[in-house]
Design a protein around this nucleic acid. Structure first.
Lengths: 130, 130
DNA sequence: TTGACATATTCCCATATGAGCATGCATTAT
DNA sequence: ATAATGCATGCTCATATGGGAATATGTCAA
């Protein structure tokens, strides 16, 4: 029997979409490639990064399937694979109900305060709603 | 004049919500704390992590405002601050139009193929839509 | 005051990167 | 064939963590 994981000192990054997107430059690249495909040189120019850095970021994005590549002569045309961002969207969406809840409570409290003492600073006593 | 950034060898992590959420354990904690507040001990039990690890993850989440704390005696009650997740939701949402586009194109192609040769494997020649 | 509890911090270690530089690899031009 | 062009990789360095163990802090109980 072989131990595949002896000790994971630090969680593997760049192994999933969440990690790939955590890097600001990569988010920048994803936005840049969202509308239409571009060759690496264009990305280098657009981001101001040097070519190797761009290639490496593209490598990470490629591995997690956040971009698609297409070869054309000696160029490579990259493009954002928007579908791969959907899981992130859905994960964040699971919290939507909670922030809506928060907003509603804030609003209700504001209105209640308004009713008690119109145009006066709030004097928080206790909150019966909790 | 002072140089604030001498050399950033690696982009600062745990400095924004994107990075905080990139860590699986922290996502797990956020979900756990989304519904209602819990004390650290409960999080430790729920996640199976040891207490210091949990405290450290909570520290990161606290710094980027993804959780709120409330002291109660010798306990600390944590709770997810869902509102802080909204920016992530909105970022991912900017890509929604693109993945919808993709889905539509896939669907159209499928229907077009269906019309040409009902129930036959697709023979991709060229794509006039691009 | 002395302890027991609940958490947060600090230290040390192994590992993962990101950036910069140099180099390897195709593919096209001459 | 040879050079030039466009990218991908490899290597080194500095730094950021995450996990685990030990320790510090703060609060309530006896």
């Amino acid at each position: 029997m072989s131990m595949h994981y002896v000790s994971v000192a630090r969680a593997r990054t760049t192994s999933d979409a969440f990690n790939a997107v955590a890097e600001p430059r990569r988010r920048q690249i994803l936005l840049y490639l969202a509308h239409d495909e571009r060759q690496v040189g264009e990305i280098v120019e657009a981001t101001g990064l040097n070519q190797p850095s761009v290639s490496k970021h593209l490598g990470v994005l490629r591995r997690v399937n956040l971009v698609r590549v297409r070869r054309n002569g000696r160029h490579r045309l990259y493009r954002t694979n928007a579908a791969a961002i959907r899981p992130l969207h859905e994960w964040t969406q699971t919290f939507e109900q909670y922030w809506r809840h928060q907003l509603i409570r804030v609003k209700e409290r504001a209105e209640a305060a308004m009713k008690r003492e119109p145009s006066a600073s709030d004097s928080p006593r206790f909150d019966p709603s909790r």
